[in-house]
Write a protein that binds this DNA or RNA. Structure first.
Length: 991
DNA sequence: GCAAGGTC
């Protein structure tokens, strides 16, 4: 029996090479949907079967991450919301062909073997491949091949010991990805939006970013610059003895090195000058070798290119990649600095014998057999960088880079340079001096490697015990010098030392801080911090977090390691790190003025920016959410001002969730009280709000210690209602928002509305409208097309009080539900039988009217949405709705579970939320009288927040329900305890 | 328009 196996490697090169090895050079090649990722086919033994194998590849990560909907817009949500915003995982457009190839091939095969690189990222890429393949073929069996290098032996061993994917490694990468995105985006948006406003003259178009790699890199440059600035030179003194031998003058240096006290040095000088004869105390000769370089890895390549060729790291890497794609050199991204024992270097050296400059050297190496040193690093995937083919016709920098790689390779394969070092010690009046000379005996690798310097230094022959007159003894004065400013190669070395970025990304991070104007490069290649970079680091230092230091990142790295080892759990790490960084962020925003001040020493007077500007542009202290949205329960709600400068409280889920609360015009400022939580509201935390009123507009009984200021919960406070602080709200049921690792958004709005007015009463006179809710959509008798502002024949009618939309265009998406609120035309995005279908849904949570758009493709499934008489709505959203599965809680027949809705007199049901989620098990009252008849009231059993959920037309105040239960003690409606009522409840709000 | 990590 033949087993059908799909193998997937991390990149095409690896797939090709592994196929070659597994097939004994017998694989055939065909095209995949991605032109960069071929499919290699062959047969071999696998899992004790004859396997027919298709081997293909991805190109690194298949999936990428981003925020969704409202969180994508820079000014649509406050940056702090990004710490809890949902994240969408999706396959970007240019990788779709790869994904489609995987899906297609997965369907044809029984087994999937993952051949991604054996590192953390590789494990995660493996998991991405697995998820895609399983979604196309859920019966495919998944294995992981582990190999340390792409050699016949390693590959064979791997195939005999197929394992399972290490979920821990994959999880660590998910963790890194999520944190990098949240932290980077939040800080970047905040900084950019704020500083563009504060320093419009200099930074109006400047992107000011924060990244956990770029910022510490900037920190290194600033640190060194400061060391140089703060350096105070010190004068030192030393002695020098000059001796003539065979007409050659030799400088001997003092064994005491240097002293910082002139008087003391002068005493030694006088002593020597009193008895100036030098006696040779020791002459020693020993052989010395200068080691040939180690095989070249990426980091060394970048450093050498920068130092010796004066080509910056980023540029050097892009040239190397070009040479690689031309087949001239090996893969340039490698952490390996030792050639695998199995690798045959002879043909590679052979190639270079043709060259006029280094051909002789290549021949010499072949005569001696190439023998490179073995370094101590291996990424177990790629060999060190080496030339593949001889390339005589390159020009410019390409030629320089290629030549360097060839010379370095030949130098590696050559022998160490040999020399003889002679050291001579002399004694002058008990003070010791020494000198050394060098004679190079065999240049060896130096012949081909001009980048290293090792020169002869001639000194004459001295004999131990001989006495010589000193030519002179002198006091030399010098000054200590500051450290040198960093050059690119030093910066890369520091990044490597502190684990900032990876070998593949060092050059990119350096490029980023250059392009963001954080640093500049001088003519001599040294890095100077720019005004922006300097100011940012100073500002952050002022705030007190070492964001420009590598520590925080190092802590994350340690956590990631712990995840890999199974000592920590991914979700815990994300939770704690998000919380940590969020606190840092909040403190940073609260102290943002310090950043302004630091920058103001470079960019002049800042434009004042305070908390009064409570918009999304990064300022002030309005960045705390008040609570989770009362409508969608998914997103946070924030205070903000409208264009007309009226205060509102809105859900950041807009436009997916349009819940919004309007305040009366007397409110001049609204803010979340960071320290005060409401102890009665569920779904904590619900913060109390601080509303500032215009003088004279606030009722006397609301005034507390501070005149004209109200502090209290907006969702369960009777006083608010009595005071006439009308919390008008409009909302829509939000579509499901995809969370991490979901590849779809189920529903997205076709357009977005701005809310212009309060909804009004339902139009009870419209028979079609009022009947529709009960009947649902009748497929046998499809209604006429829905028109905007229909003439009464449509299911939606224009309510006379709704303001005309400003455009006046023929906007079919704009309709008014029979409850008076706006209804949206939405499209199902989730893959399934209804993909692409459009439907209308009312924006108010308490209505949730649903209707398929009859203009949708009639061949689609036109069954009406699932109806359940116990459900609140005729529309059942896919997931995420706490009201989705509501079933009456009827365990007994006594009246204990019943209340009478005092508004309409109907008996209200006490229901229990069955669906798993935040509200699981919670009880609520629901009046069964249809909305069209003016009721359909909703209220959680354990709280009072009627206005949030009641139909807008209901009057304020008064209790809609009177309990008919006669059993048990009467409980306080605030704290649910017996013995008092809400008027004298000890837990009540003081207002 | 944000990050960093893979890779072409």
């Amino acid at each position: 029996m033949t087993l059908k196996v799909l193998c997937v490697a991390e990149k095409n090169d690896a797939a090709r090479e592994i196929s070659r090895l597994l097939s004994n050079n017998q694989s055939s090649r065909r095209e995949g949907l991605s032109k960069f990722n071929k499919i290699y086919e062959f047969s071999c033994e696998m899992l004790n079967n004859n396997a027919s194998v298709s081997m293909t590849s991805v190109s690194g990560h298949l999936m990428t991450y981003d925020f969704t909907g409202p969180f994508k817009g820079w000014e649509k949500c406050p940056p702090v919301a990004l710490f809890s915003a949902p994240i969408l995982s999706f396959c970007p457009e240019n990788y779709q062909p790869i994904k489609k190839t995987l899906e297609r091939e997965a369907k044809k095969n029984e087994v999937l073997v993952l051949w991604t690189d054996c590192d953390r990222e590789g494990e995660n890429i493996g998991a991405e491949i697995r998820d895609v393949c399983l979604s196309a073929n859920n019966r495919i069996r998944v294995y992981r091949a582990r190999f340390s290098e792409i050699t016949f032996r390693s590959i064979k061993t791997a195939i005999q010991r197929l394992e399972s994917l290490d979920e821990k490694l994959a999880a660590a990468v998910y963790c890194r990805q999520e944190l990098d995105l949240r932290i980077g985006a939040a800080f970047t948006r905040f900084l950019t939006l704020r500083l563009q406003k504060v320093f419009p003259a200099d930074l109006a178009d400047q992107l000011v970013s924060y990244g956990p790699c770029q910022f510490p890199t900037l920190g290194f440059v600033v640190d060194r610059y400061k060391q140089v600035q703060q350096f105070v030179p010190e004068t030192f003194y030393k002695l020098k003895a000059v001796v003539m031998k065979n007409d050659i003058s030799v400088d001997f240096s003092w064994s005491r090195g240097r002293l910082f006290n002139r008087a003391v040095t002068e005493i030694f000088l006088e002593m020597c000058q009193e008895h100036p004869t030098a006696v040779v105390s020791r002459v020693a000769s020993k052989s010395k070798s200068k080691w040939r370089p180690l095989p070249l890895d990426t980091v060394e390549f970048e450093k050498h290119a920068s130092r010796k060729l004066h080509i910056n790291a980023k540029q050097a890497m892009s040239i190397a990649e070009k040479l690689y794609t031309q087949g001239l050199i090996s893969y340039p991204r490698t952490e390996t600095n030792l050639f695998p024992a199995s690798m045959n270097l002879v043909p590679l050296v052979q190639e270079q014998t043709q060259d006029g400059q280094w051909g002789d050297m290549a021949r010499q190496i072949l005569a001696d057999t190439p023998n490179p040193r073995r370094g101590n690093k291996s990424d177990q995937a790629h060999p060190p960088i080496h030339p593949i083919k001889y390339a005589p016709n390159l020009q410019g920098d390409e030629k320089k880079v290629y030549e360097f790689i060839v010379r370095h390779f030949l130098a590696c394969c050559s022998k160490d340079a040999q020399g003889m070092e002679t050291s001579v010690d002399i004694c002058v009046s008990q003070e010791e001096f020494s000198a050394a000379g060098l004679v190079i005996t065999q240049r060896n690798y130096l012949e081909v490697y001009p980048y290293d310097k090792w020169s002869d230094k001639n000194i004459p022959n001295f004999t131990q015990g001989e006495s010589l007159p000193t030519e002179r003894i002198e006091l030399v004065e010098g000054e200590t010098t500051p450290p040198l400013l960093l050059k690119e190669a030093d910066l890369i070395a520091l990044m490597e030392k502190h684990g900032i970025g990876t070998d593949a990304t060092h050059a990119e991070h350096i490029e980023t801080i250059k392009s963001r104007r954080y640093v500049g490069v001088q003519q001599d290649g040294t890095f100077l911090p720019g005004m922006l970079g300097m100011g940012l680091v100073e500002g952050y230092d002022e705030i007190g977090y070492n964001l420009s230091k590598p520590y925080l990142r190092a802590e994350l790295e340690a956590d990631l390691k712990a995840i890999c080892l199974g000592q920590k759990n991914k979700d815990d790490v994300i939770k704690s790190m998000v919380e940590k960084y969020k606190q840092v962020f909040i403190e940073t925003t609260a102290n943002a003025i310090k950043i302004d001040q630091s920058l103001s020493s470079y960019f002049g007077t800042p434009e004042p920016m305070g908390p009064e500007q409570g918009d999304m542009r990064g300022g002030g202290d309005d960045l705390l959410p008040l609570a989770k949205c009362r409508s969608c329960l998914q997103f946070d709600m924030y205070f903000k001002t409208t264009r007309e400068e009226k205060w509102i409280l809105s859900c950041v889920g807009y436009p997916q969730c349009k819940y919004i609360v309007f305040f009366p015009s007397g409110v001049t400022h609204a803010k979340t009280e960071s320290e005060q939580l409401c102890n009665r509201c569920p779904h904590p935390p619900v913060h109390k709000a601080r509303l500032t009123f215009e003088r004279g507009t606030i009722p006397y009984f609301l005034q507390g210690d501070i005149p004209n200021v109200f502090i209290g919960c907006l969702f369960c406070n009777e006083d608010i209602k009595r005071a006439g602080i009308e919390l008008r709200n409009m909302s829509s049921h939000p579509p499901t928002v995809a969370h991490s690792h979901n590849s779809y958004q189920s529903v997205v709005p076709q357009n977005s509305f701005t809310i212009q007015d309060t909804p009004h009463n339902s139009n009870n006179n419209n028979p079609i409208a009022s009947g529709r809710r009960d009947l649902g959509f009748d497929p046998t008798n499809p209604p006429p097309p829905v028109k905007r502002y229909s003439d009464g024949t449509s299911h939606y009618t224009k309510h006379p009080r709704v303001t005309e939309p400003p455009s006046g265009g023929d906007d079919d998406n704009f309709v008014v539900c029979n409850c008076g609120a706006r209804a949206n035309l939405l499209t199902v995005k989730k893959e399934g039988p209804n993909t692409g279908r459009k439907f209308y849904t009312c924006m108010t949570n308490s209505c949730k009217y649903f209707l398929w758009d009859p203009r949708s493709d009639p061949s689609m499934d036109t069954r009406p949405p699932r109806q359940d008489p116990t459900q609140m709505s005729s529309y059942v959203p896919p997931t995420g709705d706490p009201f989705m599965s509501l079933y009456p809680n009827r365990p007994d027949s006594n009246s204990h579970n019943q209340s009478v809705c005092c508004r309409c007199g109907e008996q209200a049901k006490l229901l229990t939320v069955q669906k798993q989620g935040n509200n699981h098990g919670k009880q609520f009252y629901s009046c069964p009288k249809p909305r069209e008849q003016g009721c359909n009231f909703f209220q959680w059993a354990d709280e009072e927040r009627r206005d949030s959920f009641s139909p807008p037309q209901r009057g304020r105040g008064g209790n809609s329900f009177s309990k008919v239960s006669r059993g048990g003690p009467r409980l306080c409606s605030i704290c649910r305890q017996a013995g008092h009522n809400k008027k004298n409840c000890p837990n009540s709000n003081p207002f």
